[in-house]
């Protein structure tokens, strides 16, 4: 992988780690209280030793909120990736193995889910079932899984008569070992990883978008990169970081997902 891709991966790992840790810690354990931290006297302060990225127009610490906002999307993002990979790889493997009508069904499902805009589907789901970032993750993951299934299926289908599969069969390896190791692990893991990364980036986009527009997603006083941006918009303070730090965070994180995903792409042979 190239240096930029490594940098992107490291950044993503840091964001993910922060998100997991802050998500698992109970509220009282953190040295920062989201609700109590309002001090209008130092509203819109520039970055300093006390406030690394300054404060927003209520005097809340931007850096802390930026860090805590990761739990709004990291957990749901991982859930979405897990659901999409498990359902997608499972359905893809079964249809690749059995072929025929099941494969046709998987392809049909993939076309159908691709025809409903995912943003609209998620919006509808949280409007009906109540607003929760976990639900956003679950719906996005399930809605994305047929796409993964179709990709896995077409890969397996194209490799079924490949020489190495014949060789493995001649060696007396069972169908599950060929499917699980030779086809799925060796030939599909990068592709599934790419899909998972894209989905993670997409979930960050979904969550921040919903929170930015407001009414769904993360609501004040809970921080999200999206609602931090919306909250500061229109206030002229000395602290440009109140607006641009969350914006940059969103942009850079999604770009990193794309970078790593591109680096995972297999080079074309020949």
């Amino acid at each position: 992988m190239k240096l930029t891709a490594w940098l992107g991966l490291i950044l993503l790992m840091i964001v993910g780690l922060i998100g997991v840790v802050t998500g698992l810690l109970p509220d009282g354990w953190l040295p920062y209280d989201i609700v109590a931290d309002v001090s209008p006297s130092d509203a819109g302060a520039a970055p300093s030793a006390a406030h690394w990225l300054g404060t927003d127009h209520l005097g809340r610490d931007v850096a802390w909120r930026l860090v805590l906002a990761t739990r709004a999307f990291v957990g749901p993002g991982l859930l979405a990736c897990l659901l999409a990979s498990v359902i997608g790889v499972g359905a893809g493997a079964v249809s690749g193995f059995l072929g025929g009508p099941i494969a046709a069904l998987v392809r049909y499902l993939s076309t159908v889910t691709a025809s409903i805009p995912r943003f609209v589907l998620v919006l509808l789901a949280i409007a009906i079932n109540g607003n929760s970032t976990w639900l956003i993750g679950a719906v996005a993951g399930v809605a994305y899984s047929p796409a993964v299934a179709e990709a896995v299926f077409s890969r397996i289908d194209s490799l079924q008569r490949a020489d190495f599969v014949l060789a493995a069969r001649a060696h007396g390896l069972g169908p599950f070992r060929i499917l699980g190791y030779h086809l799925l692990w060796v030939n599909c893991r990068r592709m599934v990883g790419r899909h998972a990364l894209n989905l993670f980036g997409y979930l960050l986009l979904l969550e921040t978008t919903l929170s930015y527009i407001g009414g769904f997603g993360v609501m004040e006083p809970q921080p999200s990169w999206g609602n931090m941006l919306a909250f500061e918009f229109g206030y002229r303070t000395d602290n440009i970081w109140g607006v641009w730090a969350p914006a940059l965070a969103i942009w850079v994180t999604i770009f990193c997902c794309g970078l790593v995903s591109d680096a995972l792409a297999e080079r074309r042979r020949g």
Partner: peptide
């Protein structure tokens, strides 16, 4: 094109309005 294209639509709209 890649850098601009990955930006969420709302962020682009936000920056443009700003």
């Amino acid at each position: 094109a890649q850098v601009v294209s990955v930006a969420p639509v709302f962020l682009l709209a936000f920056v443009a309005v700003h």
